[in-house]
Design a protein around this nucleic acid. Sequence first.
DNA 1: CTGCATCCTTTGGGATACTG
DNA 2: CAGTATCCCAAAGGATGCAG
Lengths: 135, 135
Amino acid sequence: MLEGSETYSGPAASLLVGLDMRHIRLCPAIAFNQIVGGRYKLHILCVLHRGPHRFGEIGRSLLKGGLGKPITPRILSRELKDLEQRGLIERKSYPVVPRKVEYSLAERGRALLPILAEIIRWGATGAHEEILEVA
Amino acid sequence: MLEGSETYSGPAASLLVGLDMRHIRLCPAIAFNQIVGGRYKLHILCVLHRGPHRFGEIGRSLLKGGLGKPITPRILSRELKDLEQRGLIERKSYPVVPRKVEYSLAERGRALLPILAEIIRWGATGAHEEILEVA
DNA sequence: CTGCATCCTTTGGGATACTG
DNA sequence: CAGTATCCCAAAGGATGCAG
């Protein structure tokens, strides 16, 4: 947040010339991290972009392309709840037994897909794996 | 990482059809978070994309569009070192007094600019500020 | 000016067990 | 199946002070 009520003309402003960002006060890059930061959220959106998934399915899907360890139910539950509260995904519960709950991308979540696509394109060269090797 | 030596055909695969990702083992979205995750790294790249900046300048620039609090030297130093080790930025030290050190985007860092641009475009609608209000 | 050292607080994430 | 409850650990980040 800025002191006073200036609008955002900061670091990101010149990246896309001709874009009207006079009403923006917060750097989108920071917001992006706050919204989909952490180990799983972005990956979850990745999974859901292919269609609705159930709780357990998401958990198993996170294993593929992930870092080896399965997400625990507690964390997955927390992440999903957070994404839902922010309106990025939708939760639909079916009154059957055994229980069935489906998660899917909401409009706000779909708005992130172009970013995701750009990340994937970046990863297609293998750049991300080289960079991580440094650690 | 996957068990065995399968290649990555996971969640992200369908986002960009026609892209050869058979050699990729790790979901780029996860790597992206590991590389530029945290409160500052993405914002730092934002700043540097406009040209070389000095240590102190970066610190001050992070204030604009940031979340109010200034970054402490210790953290800034750590972030810069990490970005440099991974080859995303370059450090150039001038032997003058008082000291002068300039940081700039390296090739690997510039490869991230399309992603950044997409994030900014997403932010231009104000979506990120609405979503963050939920908190 | 550009950092490093020390110490401390907060947050994120994992283990395990249990419930409707 | 879809979560919750408890407890715990590790990592991220902040405050303050000092140094080349």
